[in-house]
């Protein structure tokens, strides 16, 4: 039931990602200060934004699950958070490579965006241990949804308090009012990369959902047979 439209979606996300990387390497201008390494920006920032969006999506489906009690919403919340954790690892890795290349250190503590993302990531890393430490399936879904809601609200608070703690801002702010003073060609490339990453997330999410629901249907059929 999640399989519908998977093929065009997969093709669209491959096309968008290939297009985005083509733009990154052949169209977007090279940064004057940082040179070639700045191109990791088109991977790192979409990864981070999509991961945070996925965490919030998990919280939204958590609320829906608590309101309806349906298994479907719990699965959507679970898969969204699960995928976002993987994207979070990729974000931290690409961010560290970029930091090493442009600031000269793998990790910089006076950087609110890095620190806040790390804290949020650490919190969500507890989602699976919590979920699988509960045996009763109904309670597992409910408790996981409660966690998803609490953690979803924690994301903005964490970013705010960490940002206040450090006055110095080295990390480029991409999403301020004007697009961070980027030239139009860079901003366009970034938008295409962001769209590609979002499509990739949705595709993977639907794949995982359809595989999970197929496995559950199979188990139900087996139970009926035996």
């Amino acid at each position: 039931m999640y399989g519908r439209g998977l093929k065009p979606l997969s093709i669209a996300s491959v096309a968008a990602l290939v297009g985005a990387f083509a733009l990154v390497f052949f169209y977007a201008p090279e940064d004057v200060d940082q040179g070639f390494i700045q191109k990791i920006f088109y991977l790192h920032v979409p990864l981070a934004l999509v991961a945070l969006g996925g965490f919030v999506t998990g919280g939204v489906y958590g609320v829906k699950h608590l309101r309806s009690g349906s298994r479907e919403h719990d699965m959507k919340s679970y898969v969204a958070i699960h995928l976002s954790i993987i994207l979070g690892v990729a974000t931290l890795a690409t961010g560290m490579i970029w930091a090493k290349a442009s600031w000269g250190a793998w990790w910089v503590w006076d950087e609110p965006t890095l620190v806040a993302f790390l804290i949020v990531f650490l919190l969500y890393a507890c989602y699976q241990p919590l979920r699988f430490a509960i045996e009763d399936p109904d309670r597992q879904m409910r408790y996981a949804a409660v966690f998803a809601v609490i953690a979803g609200a924690f994301v903005p608070i964490c970013f705010m308090s960490v940002r206040f703690a450090q006055a110095a801002l080295v990390h480029p702010r991409v999403l301020d009012q004007t697009g961070g003073g980027m030239p139009g060609s860079m901003f366009f490339t970034f938008l295409v990369a962001l769209a590609g990453m979002t499509l990739l997330f949705v595709t993977l999410w639907k794949f995982e959902l359809s595989s999970k629901s197929a496995r559950m249907q199979l188990a139900a059929l087996r139970r009926r047979l035996s």
Partner: peptide, 27 residues
């Protein structure tokens, strides 16, 4: 309340509480 119903209560509490309470420590 979240952790008390899990198998590994004394593991889950610090794992969840430390990141969640970090803004309080910072402030």
């Amino acid at each position: 309340a979240l952790a008390v119903q899990t198998r590994a209560r004394d593991l889950i509490v610090p794992l969840l509480a430390l990141p969640l309470l970090l803004p309080i420590v910072i402030a």
